[in-house]
């Protein structure tokens, strides 16, 4: 009886080890990040892209932001958008609430900067399709 129990234990230990061993021949599921990147889906919520020509200054994005990261100001004939990415939680409320689809979230997720102030984006141009870039 004791021997049977012992053999049973050994059998399941070997079975477990064999199951783990089988994985040695499988392909890797991870990606070596900086060199290779995974393809991000269309709906991914990364850094904001703002189209000033579409914006009508209704300030809905300001109202729905849970962390008050967005500010829309009027500068002469145009609008200026200030967004603090260090505050932003990337919930997408601004994007989903914008009636004119002026604010969109891009696939850009690499937001590391050396200076924290670089994360406060200030976008004031009236060119068509302005991308929010911090360089």
């Amino acid at each position: 009886m004791l021997l049977k129990k012992l053999l049973n234990k050994i059998y399941y230990l070997i079975l477990g080890h064999f199951t783990v061993f089988k994985h040695s021949f499988k392909r890797a599921v991870t990606v070596e990040y900086p060199e290779k990147k995974v393809k991000l889906p269309e709906r991914f919520r990364g850094k904001h892209v703002w189209n000033s020509n579409e914006c009508v200054g209704c300030k809905i994005c300001e109202k729905v932001c849970p962390v008050n990261a967005i500010h829309i100001n009027k500068v002469e004939d145009n609008f200026e958008m200030q967004i603090e990415l260090s505050k932003c939680i990337f919930c997408g409320n601004c994007q989903y609430s914008c009636l004119k689809h002026a604010i969109k979230m891009s696939n850009d997720f690499e937001l590391a900067v050396l200076n924290k102030n670089d994360l406060n984006l200030n976008i004031t141009s009236n060119e068509k399709k302005i991308e929010a870039k911090n360089d």
């Binding site: 889906p41 709906r43 997408g92």
Partner: peptide, 11 residues
């Protein structure tokens, strides 16, 4: 991520 846009904080 494909459906909602994020992996954990879906909204």
């Amino acid at each position: 991520e494909e459906l909602t846009g994020q992996r954990m904080m879906y909204n």
